[in-house]
Simulated scan of single mutants.
Amino acid sequence: MSYVLDFLLILILNMSVIFQSCFDRTFDTKHYITCIVCLAAAKGAYLVCRNHKFLQDKKLYIYGAIGVVLLIVLIFTSAENMWIEIGSFTLQPSEFVKPLFVLACATSIADQQKKHKILFFNVVYENLAIFGIMAAICLVQVKSHDYGSLPTFIGIYGIGFILRICYPKAKFSKKKLFAVIAIIVVCLLIGLKYAPEYVQHRLHVDIWSDKTGDGYQQSQALIAIANGGWFGVGPGKGFLSNIFAYDNDIVFATVSEEWGLLYALMMVLTIIIITSVPLINPARSYYHGTMSACVCAAFIVQMALNIFGSCNLIPFTGVTIPFISSGGSSLLVSGLMTGMLMAGQSPVFKEHKDNNKKKQEKPEPAWRWQE
């Protein structure tokens, strides 16, 4: 089972290359090279994240790296342009906050037992630090008008928070849990009420009465999905390839039109399997379990935002589907996070050194699980 993710990653990247190449009817060399970089990134993240003790010792550096990336977002990007151009390549620095934030949210049982009393509450300093980082991310995303990525970060933090307060044998009051949930709901309602005007308009827009305005992409995406049916109109024969962001923000609709809803659902199912395998296999440690759950939350939230936005079930957010959408930053980060999933569910065995081999007629190696 340790190698299932490797095969699934190669499978989904091959699907991605086929889809992206057929959209323009020419082999997408740039996307193919990016997929190879994605595979290399997965291997690198796997090697770095295997030892949870090493990552625990580097928590302060992870916090610092998040701060540096957020500063880069504030200084070098704007609401009109979230990308940094480097020659013919573009990078979206906010994407690289995701794997770092996952590592920050991952926790071990030992850390959660280090409680300190502040006024009348027993708190864990690390939990307060994570809350502060989440607040900083929200402020930077709001200032940059990048509201589409906020649900992904909220999903990562939510899963990390739940696993922090629900570690084995934890004593956590249900009243406190309900109070936290109530506070989150109130914050969401306040955020929706006082959201910028263009966000309010997007929440209430009727795409069919505004087909040339804010409802243009969603209305065209729905028409394309209906036009494709179960088996599609054929690779490269769809009209959606003439619409802006057809290969990333509304890629689900583009695949559905040209390849059919059946192939689009197969694509979605493959990504769901990638996220479910690490949750089925026993994690190497509680840290790895939290890390894997946070990565899975990020993938599922991103995919749901893209699909539901394309189908007009939620406001259009402009979020990519992991592995499938074009974009170097998105693919690279998806590879890094897949490597983290691999590291979280891969066992390591060590052979005992037997000093009494001469006394044994048939020595057999003994294996043990390395915590």
Rank of each mutant, 00 (worst) to 15 (best):
S285T: 04
M291I: 07
G155W: 08
V255R: 00
M267G: 00
I130Q: 13
T34N: 07
A135F: 15
N81Q: 09
G309Y: 01
L262W: 02
N248T: 08
R202I: 03
M303G: 09
S330E: 00
F172A: 04
F153V: 14
C311M: 12
R25D: 09
S346F: 12
A304E: 03
T212Y: 13
T270A: 05
S144T: 12
I12T: 02
Q112S: 08
K53V: 12
V48K: 10
K175W: 14
I274Y: 06
L222Y: 02
S276C: 06
K353R: 15
V142K: 08
C187K: 09
F101Y: 12
Q112K: 08
L128H: 07
S108C: 07
A65C: 12
L11M: 12
M1G: 15
F252E: 03
S144M: 11
L177M: 14
L261G: 03
L177R: 11
S2K: 12
V186H: 05
I300W: 11
S16Y: 08
T338G: 04
P99W: 11
L305F: 01
N14A: 11
I66G: 05
D354T: 11
K358R: 09
S310V: 06
M342G: 05
I162H: 05
R164V: 04
L8W: 09
S144H: 06
T29V: 10
E258R: 01
K211S: 15
Q360I: 12
P282V: 09
Q302V: 02
L39P: 02
Q141A: 15
K237Y: 10
E95F: 08
V69W: 02
R164Y: 06
A264L: 00
P363F: 13
V199Y: 06
L139Y: 15
Y194V: 11
S149E: 07
I183N: 14
G132Q: 04
Y147W: 11
E361W: 08
G87R: 03
A264Q: 01
A182G: 13
I225Y: 01
L5S: 01
V233Y: 00
W367S: 04
Q56C: 15
Y125H: 05
P278R: 03
F27I: 08
L11V: 06
N356E: 11
D214A: 14
C311I: 00
L240I: 03
L5V: 11
T212A: 09
A182F: 15
V255S: 00
W208M: 07
E361R: 13
I321W: 00
L188A: 14
R164M: 10
I66M: 06
F323H: 05
H52T: 08
G327C: 06
F244P: 06
I321P: 00
V348P: 02
A293S: 11
M1C: 10
